[in-house]
């Protein structure tokens, strides 16, 4: 029994060791070497003193924040109304469907839609506004990134809303709360777990988006993801690339602990 269990756990442990722990250790190790292969703390020093890197970090966080915010603003109402629609499983499938398509294909599709003679500009010409520069702007980058992340936000929120017992809503109405009060005081706080899971699933990958920054953002948006790609593939400064990687990993842990479960602190009412 016990031996069998160990046997079943083996593939998982190997996976964890080779594809999670080893790469993290390698990145951490690599980050202590400069471009000539000498051991140094210089990469970190450079990172934390260089205005370029710090601006890039802020930029990444800022764009990831915006993407997460827009995704949340769209996903919560969608998940909420989805819960009350008749064929919700079908609608949900339609929302998940785009995630089956390769990210690169979707990016190219948007290049087609947003380009100078793409369908959006054709429409703008048709209604008399004339063609605009849409591709390679911050707005188009945010739009496409949000579009891509939406399913990952809707799913956990939708599940949290589905899990909510209707008797809580009835109890709230019974105690005198109208629809809006019921939403703000009961439904939203009780589905926070879904929101947190969604934020984790969207914010962290958004920190290191790099393909979209090139294809849609036209390199006008430089994030940490772009910088890593640049260091590994162009400047061949693996040490610096790894350093940024380590910073990203640490940022992820910070986000996870911020959005994780907290023990509520007790509070005194009667003194």
């Amino acid at each position: 029994m016990k031996r069998k269990q160990v046997l079943f756990e083996m593939p998982y442990f190997f996976w964890l060791a080779f594809f999670v722990i080893a790469p993290i250790l390698l990145i951490a190790y690599q980050s202590f070497f400069n471009i000539r292969g000498q051991f140094t703390l210089g990469n970190y020093a450079t990172y934390f003193t260089s205005a370029t890197y710090l601006r890039m970090t802020l930029n990444s966080v800022w764009y990831a924040f915006l993407i997460t915010l827009f995704t949340l603003l769209i996903s919560y109402p969608t998940a909420y109304f989805l819960h009350y629609t008749k064929h919700k499983q079908l609608w949900l499938l339609l929302i998940i469907l785009p995630t089956w398509i390769n990210l690169l294909l979707k990016a190219y599709a948007f290049i087609g839609i947003f380009s100078q003679d793409g369908s959006v500009n054709q429409f703008l010409t048709f209604i008399g506004i004339g063609p605009q520069q849409i591709l390679f702007t911050d707005a188009s980058f945010l739009f496409v990134a949000t579009y891509i992340q939406i399913p990952f936000m809707i799913l956990p929120i939708f599940n949290a809303i589905e899990d909510l017992q209707p008797s809580y809503i009835n109890a709230s109405r019974d105690l005198g709360a109208n629809n809006w009060q019921t939403f703000t005081r009961i439904i939203f706080p009780m589905t926070m777990s879904g929101v947190k899971a969604g934020v984790q699933a969207v914010f962290i990958p958004s920190l290191s988006l790099f393909m979209l920054t090139r294809l849609i953002g036209g390199n006008r948006v430089i994030t940490l993801g772009t910088a890593i790609e640049e260091h590994f593939l162009v400047t061949m400064n693996w040490g610096m690339g790894s350093t940024i990687g380590v910073v990203l990993i640490i940022a992820m842990f910070i986000i996870m602990s911020l959005t994780g479960e907290h023990k509520k602190k007790g509070r005194k009412h009667n003194d």
């Binding site: 017992q165 008797s167 009835n170 109405r173 019974d174 105690l175 009780m190």
Partner: peptide, 18 residues
């Protein structure tokens, strides 16, 4: 329901866990 002067105690109590 929110305008009625009656209150209900639900079978599962529906106490707000948060």
């Amino acid at each position: 329901a929110n305008k009625r002067q009656v209150n209900t105690i639900f079978q599962d109590y529906a106490l707000f866990p948060h």
